[in-house]
């Protein structure tokens, strides 16, 4: 009972002090004449770590893709920092969020080029990291400095994910959308990734099956056939 009261206070505190970073309000999405999300509502506050779980095809990745404006919304509304998702605000979401998939696309020949790729774009051109910053972020993710000169299609899936994550950190992203990242990681790299996300400033919305990952996430959203069936916060339903 006591813990319930604590939880309620925490939720209340959050509602009063800061708006949710992501809010889905009765969102339905249809793609290729098929309903992929149906009446989804949830909110995620800054610093929270959440995981979407459910069978394959339940719509987990679609939640991430919808937030990024990659699926047109049929009804309901997605809010990012309480701003409705529009062609203008989607640019803000895309600039704040890092999306990392199971086999991330690095989009460049070498790892160095991959890390520097976003800094060719107008939006980041003035924030090009120094060599020391590159090495530092690689160290943080326990990647050797000599990986910079390796070809990006020659490195392992786990390394690719850590490079993609490094790129997100270099861009100063605060929101991480992780689609099945743990599946390609060995125990050591998984620990490194967990450490990075223990930072209270980073918000995580992930898709995973891994029990260890689920345990570490404070919030679990369960999806079934495009519907949100259960929400658990800090182990409570």
């Amino acid at each position: 009972m006591q813990s319930f009261v604590v939880l309620l206070r925490r939720i209340q505190f959050r509602i009063i002090t800061m708006p949710p970073i992501i809010r889905f309000d009765h969102v339905s999405v249809i793609a290729h004449q098929k309903t992929i999300l149906s009446d989804i509502s949830f909110a995620l506050f800054p610093g929270e770590k959440a995981v979407l779980c459910g069978k394959s095809g339940s719509g987990k990745s679609s939640v991430l893709r919808t937030l990024l404006g990659l699926h047109p919304i049929k009804s309901g509304m997605v809010y990012f920092q309480e701003q409705p998702l529009t062609p203008v605000s989607v640019q803000v979401i895309r600039s704040c969020a890092a999306y990392i998939g199971q086999e991330p696309m690095l989009g460049a020949e070498s790892v160095r080029e991959a890390l520097l790729l976003p800094f060719q774009f107008k939006s980041h051109r003035d924030h090009r990291p120094t060599e020391a910053q590159l090495v530092e972020v690689l160290q943080r993710l326990q990647l050797p400095a000599n990986i910079l000169s390796q070809e990006s299609n020659r490195i392992s899936g786990g390394e690719k994910q850590r490079v993609a994550l490094a790129r997100g950190l270099l861009l100063g992203k605060k929101l991480y959308l992780l689609d099945e990242v743990t599946s390609a990681l060995d125990a050591e790299s998984k620990r490194v990734v967990f450490d990075v996300f223990s930072d209270p400033h980073l918000t995580v919305l992930s898709v995973a099956h891994d029990p260890e990952w689920l345990e570490r996430c404070g919030i679990v959203f369960e999806l079934e056939a495009g519907q949100l069936t259960q929400v658990r916060r800090d182990g409570n339903t």
Binding site: R94, S95, Y99, G101, M105, G107, P118, F121, S123
Partner: peptide
């Protein structure tokens, strides 16, 4: 498609 979406996520404009 996936690579194109990655570029968008990294802050590229449509043209970039």
């Amino acid at each position: 498609e996936h690579e194109y979406a990655t570029f968008l996520m990294l802050g590229a404009t449509r043209w970039e």
